[in-house]
């Protein structure tokens, strides 16, 4: 069987590279941590990989806005490589700081067509609370999204760990369009509510940890291949990482791995997509 090759970016303050590499390996990928400069200098080539992950962290200390400086390096120095990667239908994920990077490069939410234009259309800004916080939230996935990363996922619990996670767009029309395209892949939700939520109402803190417009936690591009989210699904790869584990009430999964946590499926989806593409 084909073993998908995953490039996990690191350098300049990215700091979730080890666990992000590990979770892809758990679901059958072959991960390599690659320093961004290796791609820029040509020492390594993005085209050698099937999947690109931009992990969480504090690239450049979040100064001048989270993800901005890392995003610029990619926007100005890896433009052609990224365009080719996307046009080869290869999946990209950005988690937390990685999501911020993808938004600032303009890869998310991206243009209408298939060719990335590297124009920023949205932003992730300071949480309404003004505080960086590490707390657990509940996420609800959009069943109508074509995102290959979230196929079959419904609800999961997951930690957020950010100070700048509030998703904003410059006008109401852009948001409406994003929603109509089913690019709003994942939202914060009150774990005690049913699915019937008016997402024009921003949920109260801390159900929404940041005050995101339309309670957005993550979005994908038009193709469903590029996906970014603020919460950390890799941080619930095992049930023992769930805060309810000692209470005996941590959510179980149907996986063959008896200790598997709810977050691992996201990474498995991309691996399975790549395997079937290469079958």
């Amino acid at each position: 069987m084909y073993i998908p090759k995953v490039a996990v970016l690191f350098g300049f303050g990215i700091n979730c590279d080890h666990e992000t590499a590990a979770v892809f390996e758990m679901v059958g990928g072959n991960s390599t941590r690659v320093h961004l400069n290796s791609f820029i200098s040509g020492a390594d080539d993005l085209a050698n990989y099937d999947i690109l992950a931009v992990p969480g962290g504090f690239s450049f200390g979040d100064h001048l806005g989270s993800g901005r400086l890392m995003g610029n390096r990619m926007r100005f120095s890896l433009r052609d490589e990224l365009t080719k990667f996307i046009q080869a239908d290869k999946p990209i994920i950005g988690i937390c700081n990685g999501f911020q990077v993808l938004v600032k490069t303009g890869l998310l939410p991206g243009p209408d067509g298939n060719e990335p234009d590297f124009i920023q259309r949205a932003s992730l800004t300071l949480n309404d609370s003004g505080r960086y916080e590490d707390r657990w939230v509940t996420l609800e996935f959009n069943q109508d999204s074509n995102c290959i990363w979230t196929k079959g996922m419904t609800r999961i619990d997951c930690p957020v760990r950010h100070g700048e996670g509030k998703y904003v767009m410059p006008d109401r029309e852009s948001l409406t369009q994003l929603s109509a395209n089913n690019q709003i892949t994942v939202r914060y939700i009150d774990p005690n509510s049913n699915d019937d939520v008016d997402n024009n109402q921003v949920l109260p803190f801390p159900i929404s940890p940041n005050g995101s417009m339309m309670n957005i936690a993550g979005i994908c591009d038009k193709t469903g291949l590029v996906f970014g989210l603020m919460p950390h699904p890799e941080a619930i790869y095992a049930q023992w990482l769930h805060p309810d584990f000692t209470r005996g009430t941590a959510p179980q999964t149907e996986s063959e791995i008896d200790w598997e946590g709810q977050g691992l499926q996201i990474f498995r989806n991309a691996i399975e997509y790549t395997i079937s593409k290469n079958a």
Binding site: N15, C16, H18, E19, Y132, E133, D134, A235
Partner: peptide, 15 residues
């Protein structure tokens, strides 16, 4: 305490 990242590295079982 909640303003410290206590879960990066995906290893913290008792928080």
């Amino acid at each position: 305490v909640r303003q410290y990242d206590h879960e990066v590295i995906a290893q913290t079982a008792v928080k």
